[in-house]
Write a protein that binds this DNA or RNA. Structure first.
Lengths: 110, 110
DNA sequence: TTGACATATATGTCAACAACATATATGTTA
DNA sequence: TAACATATATGTTGTTGACATATATGTCAA
């Protein structure tokens, strides 16, 4: 039993990319840090990135200039920034709903 | 795109039952009110109730004393109360995670 | 120089969850 | 007696996330 926001990695991804372009492997680290979890699943993250690219939310290109092997670097599109804003609005509403829930619980368990 | 807590109806159900025994059809109304949604899906709610009964989280019995057709009335077990407590702990953590997320977003969008 | 490990990207599989449709029984009321 | 509300229940399906696996390349120590 573990309360979880459905598709939470998606807004986390958008937020991180809104702070600067990055690539999958690095995003996974940043996200684990942001969400305070052990680590996020690489496979699903890469799939999500490709899927978002298909929808015009992010854009990518291979980057060979950094040391190490080639990285596919992603950045947000304008549409992606809009989607992040929509997520934030929605997450605020969800958070208020949960706050109301917890308050109702606490009222009966003082 | 709609931020949603996974299995949110479950803790909502447990909270409502912790405030008093009830039956499925009535719980659906109370829950729509609690979660501030149009309405919850009856089918999935009844299935959830049966499933929770199988796990010893709730107990039920037919109640013919009220007017109208027979109702299967559910109440929480001790195990159910413990599960509610666990949900609350977990929801608090999730809420704090989302709060941190929103704060980080707001910092860059003042 | 090779073996072990970290970095980096990617696909395959599967169970669960929620959305939506449908079925059935019974009570109420116009 | 027809329409509607109450009440419980099962069937079906797409999406999501957990877990497993594959592949390529860079780094570093023995």
């Amino acid at each position: 039993m573990q309360a979880r926001i459905e598709r939470y990695v998606e807004p986390a991804l958008l937020l991180l990319l809104s702070e600067g372009a990055s690539h999958g492997y690095e995003l996974a680290d940043q996200m684990a840090n942001l969400l305070d979890v052990e680590r996020v699943d690489y496979g699903n993250l890469y799939r999500l990135l490709r899927s978002l690219e298909g929808e015009g939310i992010v854009e990518s290109e291979w980057n060979d200039e950094l040391p190490g092997r080639s990285k596919r670097t992603y950045e947000l599109t304008d549409q992606g920034r809009q989607l992040l804003d929509a997520w934030v609005t929605s997450l605020r509403a969800a958070n208020e709903s949960v706050s109301a829930f917890l308050q109702r619980y606490d009222e009966r368990n003082t």
